[in-house]
């Protein structure tokens, strides 16, 4: 045992399984990851669907990416809570005093978080079909849209892991995630930015969620993604790398 070198992939896989198990046993988090997005989709699609005019789109088609990011942000607050709970309890000391790859625990949390969010996203798209979603994009469009969503989920997850490490209590870890609950509403997710007040419009057009939402919406409905694709990718990759690097640094420093 002592002869083996720590293997990041193996350790991270064990941690991933652990984090998945913990998450699946939290009924509140499960509801947040599945039922809440179903209701959100039904509510926006069935209740507001017919009264809202968003130009060329049907409202259901229009809001799917916004609903996805909103639901993902909400559900990912449990990632921040889970990370923080680990840090505040003795378990992290046990892991740190074992010969494991240093970032295995954080990667396990992030991996489990991404996996849960993929489930959440699938649930939303499934529900969207129920309320009349009519996609027009081809296979390649869908693959690119899925890739952009996956990277965005990764970015939100990495931010959550960092919040979990930064906060002193699980409650405040979730609190640090709060801006992410609001961002989807101040984006192109639920209303076209052209309809917004000038200052809000400027903000909406320059925050990271808007290009992601635009790309996903365009591709799913068979329109070209245009420049938004590169802006969205830059945001997602940039935030993922920065947040994860900060998280690892913070995790290491807590050992000092």
């Amino acid at each position: 045992m002592s002869k083996q070198k720590p293997r990041l992939f193996y350790d991270a896989k064990v941690m991933f399984k652990r984090c998945m198990k913990i998450a699946l046993r939290n009924p509140e988090a499960l509801v947040q990851a599945t039922l809440t997005p179903i209701f959100l989709m039904l509510l926006f699609g069935a209740v507001f669907g017919n009264i809202t005019d968003v130009g060329d789109y049907s409202y259901v088609d229009f809001i799917i990416p916004g609903i996805i990011l909103q639901a993902v942000a909400q559900a990912t607050s449990y990632t921040a809570i889970n990370v923080n709970t680990d840090m505040m309890k003795g378990i992290v000391d046990r892991f740190r005093s074992m010969p494991l790859a240093k970032s295995a625990l954080l990667i396990g949390h992030a991996g489990a978080s991404i996996m849960r969010n993929v489930m959440t996203t699938a649930v939303i798209i499934g529900t969207a079909f129920v309320v009349g979603f009519t996609p027009k994009g081809g296979l390649v469009d869908w693959l690119i849209a899925s890739g952009v969503l996956l990277l965005s989920v990764t970015a939100i997850t990495c931010f959550a892991v960092f919040c979990g490490l930064k906060a002193k209590t699980p409650e405040s870890a979730s609190g640090l995630m709060f801006p992410l609950f609001i961002l989807p509403f101040v984006s192109s997710g639920f209303a076209p930015t052209e309809t917004m007040h000038v200052a809000i419009r400027w903000f909406a057009e320059h925050q990271p969620m808007t290009p992601v939402i635009n790309v996903v919406r365009s591709l799913m409905l068979g329109h070209p993604a245009g420049n938004d694709l590169w802006v969205a990718l830059a945001w997602a990759v940039g935030i993922s790398v920065l947040a994860f690097a900060l998280a690892v640094r913070r995790y290491m420093r807590k050992m000092g």
């Binding site: 652990r18 309890k89 003795g90 074992m98």
Partner: peptide, 26 residues
């Protein structure tokens, strides 16, 4: 190390807790 506060996962079973450590220690 056995610290002052039990380093166990509350929502997992005793068996699962031991299983994870066994896996991590290969």
């Amino acid at each position: 190390l056995t610290g002052q506060f039990a380093a166990v996962d509350e929502v997992l079973t005793g068996r699962e807790n031991l299983q994870i450590i066994g896996e991590l220690k290969r």
